[in-house]
């Protein structure tokens, strides 16, 4: 494991070094301190910000990479999300006591990213073993009722 980790760290360090060098002297901007309360009307479907904005908005493009980092971007500056999304959009998946899994609510939108699609009941014990921290982002870090139903001590 140590050897593998060393390789991973070396690869990452090399990547970061290249990145830092390319960043040197840059005064570009991705993050903004303010945003309009409502974004003007856009075409239905997943937006690609760079179609209208400068390339420095690429971080917000709703492509396949966006799902993994949406929490971080919301944590950084949520008003930008709220320009288009209502609070229900977040609580549909992150709601406190949600009874309906997101994939059922979005059953008519298979193009949208959603956890628990397909036979998740069988897969959850595999994916849960792979990385429990990913479950706990939605199901609570401590002793979620739904988890306790089967996994109580």
């Amino acid at each position: 494991m140590r050897r593998k980790r060393l390789i991973h760290i070396s690869m990452l360090a090399a990547f970061l070094a290249v990145t830092l060098l390319s960043c040197a002297g840059d005064t570009g901007s991705v993050k903004r301190s303010s945003a309009p309360k409502r974004h003007e009307e856009i075409e239905p479907g997943k937006p690609l910000c760079t179609e209208c904005h400068d390339d420095d908005r690429a971080v917000y493009n709703h492509n396949s990479a966006f799902f993994d980092k949406h929490g971080r971007l919301a944590g950084t500056f949520s008003p930008l999300c709220e320009g288009c999304h209502k609070p229900k959009f977040c609580s549909d998946c992150h709601g406190n006591k949600e009874d309906i899994v997101p994939s059922r609510k979005l059953g008519n939108r298979p193009d949208l990213e959603s956890p628990h699609r397909g036979d998740y009941f069988t897969k959850h014990k595999i994916e849960g073993r792979l990385d429990k921290s990913t479950c706990f982002k939605c199901h609570g870090r401590r002793n979620n009722k739904r988890c306790k139903r089967c996994h109580d001590k």
């Binding site: 760290i9 990385d131 921290s133 002793n143």
Partner: peptide
């Protein structure tokens, strides 16, 4: 777009309050 990620999760410290079996 290329995305590279590296994460380390320490169970003892991440799940300190968890009592699940």
């Amino acid at each position: 777009t290329f995305v590279a990620r590296y994460d380390i999760t320490g169970f003892e410290d991440y799940f300190t309050e968890t009592e699940l079996s």
